[in-house]
Every structure is written in structure tokens, then in C-alpha cells.
Simulated assay, not measured.
Amino acid sequence: MTDPEPEQQRTAVLPLGALLPSDSPRVAGEDPLHVQALARLDAPLPPIVVHRETLRVVDGMHRLRAARLRGDERIAVRFFDGSAEDAFVHAVRVNTRHGLPLTQADRTAAAERIIRSHPHWSDRLIASATGLAASTVAALRRRATGQAPQVKARTGRDGRVRPVNPAEGRRRAGALIAAKPQASLREIADGAGIAVGTARDVRLRIRQGQDPVPKKLRDAESRMQETEICAQPAPAPVVAAAAEPAASVTVSTDPPLKKLCKDPSLRFTEDGRALLQLLSAHTLGGTRWRRLLDAVPAHRRAMVAQAARYCGESWLRFAIELERRAV
């Protein structure tokens, strides 16, 4: 999806005092020498772009300051309709195409901000708006992990939505090929949300008896899943499953749980991931155990103990049923 230009068929004239300063992508602000050069022009200044909802300048702060410098009271404007976040993207985009160029620092800061405001945009789409290389945007996104919302799919420059994890698309393609062996590569690609070339590779791998997902992608997926489930701090549990007195309990990280976190048969299914997250949430280290005990107010200790015992009994029934099925 390309970022659309604002509608610019109609030009309005507004008082300078009605306009708010730009949410500028320029880290150091406007260049005074450029403002003076514009102020000396005899020709009318080109219209500036203004966010219709807020009357904040989107593009044209140098022209606005030049108009003030030469004593103008009004200026021609064209309106941008959209969110403040999209207005900022437009400001970055137009300033990479004409006028005083953005510096490398400006474009880098802009890309970091767009990664946070438009996490569903692909690296190439953000790169096209900021004038950076897609590889640079990818590196910035990796550094921003935890600050930007995590998404499962991103929109590319062509408007197509593709999964962040390419292995998922390949598996969908494999399922489509199994269900409709005579389907064309275009049908498979459209149905799985992948490129035609990728669909061709998946079909070839299946015909050769290979996994539709190459080992390189499987390894990358495994590392990503392990990070999501095992490396991130587990959410604080509501209660702890314990049936013994607190003084006699010593809880440590369970080695079997570490092994389970690496098992793809659990990591790669929704219910399996949910189970691992629940197990991680209820596995407490000694220090954390003590902190939770201290957090319970005196008047709620008996009730929390009952809730903990109930949870413990639920997990015990779960374990007994698993053991019965394992026989």
C-alpha cells in the first residue's frame, strides 16, 4: 500500500495566526538561511499543507516563516485529511522528495516513529516514506522490540498483506496444494498470501517429499517462538498452586518446562502455546514466591490460600488425566 497524497484540488487562504507549528520531522527545526532565501523571492510562495482537523502545518514551515518574515498576513494552504500519525508520514514523504532535504538523523528518527505508529507497515513501505534502505528500517525495528506493537502481518508497498513469519504462509500454501492439487500457482499464492515464486517453491518441495518450509525458516521460527514464550517474563499469576505449608516449599525453574518450550508440536499450535504460557505463569522461583506471599494482605490470606488450593487441585486433576492417557 502506498501512502496516498492528500487531496489538493482546492486551495484556501488562511491568516498566519490561525496556523499551528508543524510536528516537524526535522530534528533541528527549520534552517534560518533557507527561510531568508524564500523570503527574498518575488514570486508567491507555493501553498503549504495543513492538517484540516488541527490546522497544524504538515508541510511548509520554511514557507510559513518566510511569509511572516516578509510581513504577509495570509498564506495559501491545501488541506490534509487524515490522522495526525498519517499527517506526519506525509510530511516525511514529501520532504524526502522536494525542498530542503531531510538529514540522515531526521530520516532515522522519522523511521523509528513510524515503526511505532504504523507497525503493520513493511520495512520496504516505511523505507519508501523515509528515504532509507529497507535493511536500515529492519535494523531499527529490531532495536525497537518491546516499544512497537507486535503484529502477525504487514502491508507492503504493493498493498498486499503478508505474514511477518513467512513459514506460516508456506504452510498455508502446502495445505491448499493438498486440498486442491490442480490449483494454479496464482490461486495458491493468493489464497496463502505469498508470492507466486514462493508458491512454486512450495509445490516443488512437496513433490520432492520435502518440508514446504526450508530449514532456515524453521530455525528462525523456532527462535522467534522460543523468545516469545520462554524468554519473555511470564505474567504474574493470580494464585500459586501449592498444597504444602509455605515454609516447606522450595520452587525452582522446572527442567521439563524448558524442554517443552522447545517442542514445536506445542509451540506451533494456539492451544499448545496457551498451555506453555499457563505453565510458565505458575512456575515460581523462590524469591518471587516470597514476594507474592508478602503481597497478600492479612485479611485475605485465608481466601487466597483457598484459591491457591483450588488451582492446585485443578492442575492435579489435569496431571492425573494426562498420566492416564499416557499409559
Rank of each mutant, 00 (worst) to 15 (best):
D3I: 14
P4F: 05
P6T: 04
E7P: 02
Q8S: 09
R10G: 00
A12K: 02
P15A: 14
L16E: 03
G17V: 12
G17M: 00
L19I: 02
L20C: 01
P21E: 01
S22M: 09
D23M: 02
D23C: 00
D23L: 04
D23Q: 07
S24C: 05
V27L: 08
A39G: 08
L45R: 01
I48M: 08
V49E: 07
L55G: 00
R56L: 03
V58P: 10
V58I: 05
V58H: 05
D59Y: 08
A67D: 01
R68Q: 14
G71M: 05
I75Y: 02
F79P: 09
F79G: 04
A84W: 00
A84P: 00
D86M: 04
A87P: 04
V92P: 01
V92C: 10
L102S: 03
R107P: 07
R113I: 04
R113P: 00
R113Q: 09
H120W: 14
W121P: 13
S128W: 00
G131N: 04
V137C: 07
R141L: 09
A144K: 05
T145N: 01
G146L: 08
Q147Y: 10
A148V: 03
R157P: 12
P163T: 13
P163C: 13
E168Q: 15
G169L: 11
A173M: 12
A173C: 11
A179N: 06
K180W: 12
Q182V: 08
R186W: 08
D190N: 15
G193T: 11
A195G: 15
T198M: 12
A199W: 03
V202T: 03
L204A: 15
R205N: 06
R205G: 02
R207T: 06
Q208L: 15
G209T: 06
V213I: 12
K215M: 09
K216I: 14
E221Y: 01
E221L: 14
E221W: 09
S222R: 15
M224G: 07
Q225P: 00
V238A: 15
V238D: 14
E244L: 13
S248A: 11
D254Q: 10
P256E: 10
L257R: 02
K258H: 07
K262R: 15
S265D: 15
S265T: 15
L266T: 14
G272M: 10
Q277C: 08
L279K: 05
L279Q: 07
S280T: 01
T283P: 06
L284S: 02
G286H: 08
G286N: 07
R291A: 13
A295F: 04
V296R: 14
V296P: 10
V296T: 14
P297K: 14
P297G: 13
V304F: 14
A308L: 02
Y310T: 13
G312I: 04
E313G: 06
W315H: 02
A319S: 13
A326H: 11
V327K: 13
